[in-house]
Design a protein around this nucleic acid. Structure first.
Length: 931
DNA sequence: GCAAGGTC
């Protein structure tokens, strides 16, 4: 069998189709992996890299004192499968193969992916010959050519890729760990560092600093308005920007009628048709239509998978000779673009346009199949149309403009006006995405005199450089060689998810800034694009076999060690600076009580807003627990309290906007305060003026302090404090009920917990106790099913029983024993005989008596007679001596309160029979057997 | 828990 390994499933499928010719291809899906077989050949697709490099085992603990961040530099690496199913299938097929051909993409990374596949094959089959097919497009011609001229894997090329892998891992992982540990950050808050992400972040930070330090300069622009044949014309002073106001004023002063035409220069300008799309120019074009980089790529990948466009990850801006341009035009015939295609066919330029970059991996992005507006709704259609129109534009003639430049004189001051008219729209007919702005001037003649309708001296300011938009950043990254066509947009996503940058255009956060500053000061190798350039040079040398992979990696190791010398010497300082700089990220604004900063505090599962004046100032605002999301500061500031708004963010959930935390705090306490009978509007206002907003705060106050703050007597204050305590209890019980409901009743469409809870509250059910006494019909009205109601009632009863017993004073250890004996309700304590309880639980009857006494008194029920341990044990012995009484019978008798000879002798046989289930006649016999 | 690179 001849095994052919392609880079991805789609390639495998198409390669099989081409090589099979007229023969039928058998597609077999084994789990999620497809194979394509014909004749004696089987083609299978990888998923890009199916193995990944990682450190050898033993380096997983970040806080290890042996395996420190620095130790990662010299740690060994291993390759581990990430796509186990594919790896498994490749090895299964490789065992049976008598020839293996690697048919991955024709670039460095493709060669490495091929070598990884080769290693997987070798691991299970030592002898099978392995060769390589190289093609730069999956077209019948290229593929047949490649398979007719099979070559060998280029191990030097693959080694260049491996050097990159190792160097990226050791720099990235060691620095990420070092800086995260220094700044005491873990979990989802780690501070990542990498060869591509760090220089990218640094650019955004640097731009922000330029903007901040920008000092605008004032300048003046002088222009005048004139007119000919009813057409208004604006002419600008040829001096352009005036830096000197006096000079501008003097020029304005001298400007006077008549305005004389001094020269006219006419010309023509060609407006080049756009070049074929590579990934970057595609992202730029899509961003003009309002698509984010990630979204544009997601849609393009989708269109590619469905056969509408070609592979969207390419660096190529030149159509390869093998690309059948006429065929593509033919495909687009009869679609929405029919007229445009016909026009292009008729007016086609001799050679398609070409961009600056030409590579061998994939052709530029072009249409691959016909689609209808109906089949591709909305955004997908917009992207498809963009690709189609761009393709058409690259085959269309250039546009031509007629230009005119007219110069004037006004009192010795020179002015000029320029005009442009599109005389041949060319490619613009089929590619309407950039507007052709015409400015048509009236026909002037030299020497002609014109009126001046107004002179304008405009004061302007120089502008700071703009922030990077996503597409601009991707363009700059490409210029600097940072990242690849496939990863640039993901890098931006990574910076966002690490909370280093936000918004579009991109702005750095304080964390992003702090990390960049720290790296800039102590490890600037990693923040410079230079590192990538050097790496690429080294990779080139490896490809040319002038250097080895090991040699390059060793050099990089030594450099990284030197970086660590510097970092470790300043660990405290680096960590301290990052923590200090980022503290502001949690600062919301002034404390209403003392004016110090209010700050979000995270402590494990709980989070709250506290005052930096603590412990002198104890003002604080509680926040929902971290399970609802991590509290972060947002841009908006409350105009009333000058506090930044707060938002809870959680993965996979929409953000919970709390808004101004103080407004929210006040609002959420309005209802609770209203639940206090003694609370009046007056008191509330006075308390609010003292920044006392919550029932919780009132409950914790001293009567004197409250009396003073609320303007009431101390007696009234005491009452208010007691009321506040009671309200807190009610609220606590409510929240307990809420939690309980959530545990048992799952939320469903149209019945949120909030809804159920509100309905129950309407019915007067505000805690677990009232729920345990509720009717099933009431629960049903609240949207709870019968089975759920049953469970709610049983469970809530159990909880209430246990709570009553605890309240009565039964210790928890004993409660456990009762529970194990199946004795759970307070009624059981009051009604069951003490000897029975003692026997079932194994507890001392005197102890049981104490418990029963407590429960009965708590419930206001009569307390039964006490039984001593001695009489209990004697009675037991005596009864077991009576013929016919064994352990089982005794247990039953205990239930009827019979625990010794006397109680048995005095028992009513019929009644005892009813309780114990022992026949009355048997009981009579037992009594008769008493001696 | 870390990078960057493939692909989905």
């Amino acid at each position: 069998m001849h095994l052919i390994i392609a880079e991805k499933n789609i390639s495998a499928n198409r390669i099989a189709g081409i090589l099979a010719g007229d023969e039928k291809v058998r597609a077999v899906k084994d789990g999620s992996v497809s194979t394509y077989s014909f004749d004696t050949k089987t083609v299978v697709g990888l998923k890009g890299h199916v193995v990944e490099v990682d450190f050898e085992p033993g380096y997983t603990n970040w806080r290890s004192t042996v395996h420190t961040p620095r130790s990662l530099i010299d740690a060994g690496t291993v390759k581990k499968p990430t796509e186990k199913k594919i790896v498994g299938l490749i090895q299964k097929l490789a065992k049976k193969a008598d020839l293996v051909t690697i048919a991955t993409d024709y670039d460095t990374e493709g060669e490495l992916i091929g070598k990884e596949a080769y290693e997987l094959v070798r691991a299970v089959n030592k002898d099978v010959p392995v060769n390589r097919a190289r093609f730069s497009a999956i077209t019948p011609q290229e593929i047949r050519q490649a398979f007719a001229n099979l070559t060998e894997i280029d191990f030097a090329l693959a080694a260049a890729g491996e050097a990159r892998q190792t160097i990226d891992l050791m720099w990235g992982a060691s620095l990420t760990r070092f800086i995260s540990i220094a700044a005491k950050r873990g979990g989802t808050n780690i501070l990542s560092v990498g060869r591509v992400q760090s220089p990218t972040l640094a650019m955004i930070v640097e731009r922000e600093k330029e903007i901040e330090s920008f000092v605008p300069e004032t300048y003046w622009m002088l222009s005048l308005a004139t007119e000919k044949d009813g057409t208004a014309v604006e002419a600008r002073h040829t001096h352009g920007k005036f830096d000197d106001h006096a000079e501008a004023l003097a020029a304005e002063e001298r400007t006077r009628e008549p305005l004389t035409v001094t020269a006219i220069k006419e010309g023509q300008k060609t407006d080049r048709a756009p070049t074929p799309l590579d990934t970057t120019s595609f992202i730029v074009a899509a961003s003009r239509l309002g698509f984010s980089a990630a979204n544009a790529m997601r849609i393009a990948e989708d269109l590619y998978m469905n056969g509408y466009i070609s592979y969207p990850r390419t660096d190529n801006t030149v159509y390869p000779k093998s690309l059948n341009l006429n065929g593509i035009l033919q495909t687009l015939r009869g679609t929405d673009f029919d007229k445009d295609v016909a026009w292009v066919e008729k007016n086609r330029r001799p050679v398609p346009t070409r961009g600056k970059k030409e590579t061998t991996d994939h052709p530029p992005i072009h249409p691959a199949g016909a689609a209808t507006r109906q089949a591709l709704a909305g955004d997908r259609w917009k992207i498809y149309e963009l690709v189609v129109r761009r393709f058409l534009a690259t085959l269309s003639p250039d546009a031509t403009w007629a230009t005119i430049k007219c110069t004037f004189d006004a009192g010795g001051e020179p002015y000029t006006a320029t005009g442009g008219r599109l005389i041949d729209p060319g490619w613009r007919r089929v590619y309407p995405y950039s507007e052709a702005k015409e400015n048509i001037l009236p026909t002037f003649t030299v020497g002609e005199r014109l009126p001046i309708h107004g002179i304008q001296l405009e004061e302007k300011q120089t502008q700071p450089p703009p922030r990077y938009s996503q597409s601009k950043l991707i363009q700059v990254m490409e210029e600097l060689g940072l990242g690849t066509k496939s990863t640039r947009h993901e890098v931006i996503g990574k910076l966002v998810s690490r909370r280093y940058v936000q918004g579009n255009p991109l702005r750095p956060t304080l964390v992003g800034r702090a990390v960049t500053d720290a790296l800039d000061n102590h490890a600037d190798t990693i923040t410079e694009p230079e590192m990538t350039r050097t790496l690429e040079e080294h990779m080139q040398l490896i490809k040319e076999q002038q250097r080895t992979r090991e040699d390059v990696i060793t050099e990089s190791r030594e450099m990284l060690h030197r970086v660590f010398d510097e970092l470790e010497a300043h660990e405290q300082e680096i960590g301290g600076e990052i923590m200090e700089q980022t503290a502001e990220e949690h600062t919301l604004g002034p404390c209403p009580v003392c004016g110090e900063d209010l700050r979000i505090r995270h402590t494990g599962a709980s989070q709250f807003i506290g005052c930096t004046g603590y412990p002198d100032c104890r003002f604080n605002i509680s926040l929902p627990g971290s399970m609802w999301g991590r509290a972060i500061r947002v841009e908006e500031v409350c105009s009333e309290h000058t506090l930044a708004h707060v938002r809870l963010i959680r993965k996979g959930a929409p953000p919970w906007n709390i808004g101004c935390p103080l407004c929210s705090h006040i609002k959420s306490n309005v209802e609770a305060l209203g639940m206090m009978p003694g609370m009046t509007d007056d008191i509330r206002e006075r308390l609010r003026a003292r920044h006392i907003y919550a029932v919780y705060d009132i409950a914790g106050m001293k009567p004197e302090a409250l009396a003073e703050a609320a303007g009431v007597t101390e007696t009234e204050a005491e009452m208010l404090i007691a009321e506040a305590g009671e309200v807190l209890n009610v609220l606590r019980r409510r929240s307990e009920l809420r939690k309980f409901l959530r545990k048992i009743v799952p939320p469903r469409r149209g019945r949120s917990h909030a809804k159920i809870f509100a309905k129950l509250l309407d019915e007067g059910i505000g805690d677990i106790r009232s729920l345990s006494g509720a009717r099933a019909s009431t629960l049903k009205k609240a949207g709870i099913s019968e089975a759920e109601a049953e469970e709610l009632l049983t469970t809530s009863r159990e909880i209430c029983h246990e709570r009553t017993l605890k309240e009565a004073g039964v210790p928890a250890v004993s409660l456990k024993k009762y529970r194990e004996a199946g004795i759970t309700s307070p009624d059981a304590f009051c009604l069951l005989p003490i000897p029975y309880l003692a026997s079932r639980t194994g507890l001392n009857p005197e102890t049981v008596y104490k418990h029963v006494e407590k429960v009965c008194e708590h419930l206001d029920r009569p307390v039964p007679l006490k039984i001593t341990k001695g009489s209990y044990e004697r009675g037991r012995e005596d009864l077991l001596a009576v013929p016919g009484i064994g352990e089982t019978t005794l247990e039953k008798l205990l239930l009827a309160g019979i625990y010794d000879k006397a109680t048995l002798r005095n028992a009513d046989p019929d009644q005892t029979a009813a309780i114990t289930g022992i026949p009355a006649a048997t009981i009579r016999t037992l009594i008769a057997n008493l001696t």
